[in-house]
Design a binder for these strands. Sequence first.
DNA 1: CCGAAAATAT
DNA 2: GATATTTTCG
Length: 232
Amino acid sequence: MMNKNKDHEKKKNKKPRLTWSEELHRKFVNVVNLLGIENAVPRKILAFMNDERLTKENVASHLQKYKLSLKRISSSCVPNKNGSIIGCGQFQNVSPSDPVYQNDAVQQKPMSTLHSDERLDSLVDDVLLQWWEDNNQDPTDLSDVIGTLLNTPPLKDAVNSNLGSTQDLVTLASSSCVSHESIEIGELRQEIAATRNETRQLRETIHALKAQQDMLVQVVLQLLPPNVLTQQ
DNA sequence: CCGAAAATAT
DNA sequence: GATATTTTCG
């Protein structure tokens, strides 16, 4: 009808172009990790995210891009698997400026080579505190509450690796203490033991919570297929 | 409904 | 021109 009326000023019933803020993306990744890339299909993701801003198409589109980025990353880690010729000289050629690292989650925790003390601190400050912080946030947001734990893939690994290095910590601390002759080695040991114990408890808590969440996810998934409201 | 590809918008 | 997001298609 309207002559040369471009779609410009037409904001009738059209939703404005969605932009995936970091917050939205984080939520998205949370849910995807929660469901597992396996069952992460648009409808379920949408239901779990439960965000009025989103439409199934939005999610589908973002999922497509997300999978592509995952694909790129994994393939750059495992160049090939052909049991034939061609010496495996393939090097990773994904520069830090690669869009993959800038746009999509998949952030690596740069704390794998820190020294014992720092590692412990990192564990507490950078991971666990983060976790608590996130978990204590607005408990009305299902996706956030549920996703937080799994949201931080580095969490489990970080905890385990640090837990594993606790032994080293003990020996390290002991030796350095001995060399400085009698500096309350007893207290030190105690402290170490306490920390160790604390860490163990935290790990247990995390395991428990994860189990709870996994269970919850299963329940919701069972409840989903029928006809959960999915229209926006 | 899903995922991939083509079309647009930024 | 490159990306991000939307729309079309199978």
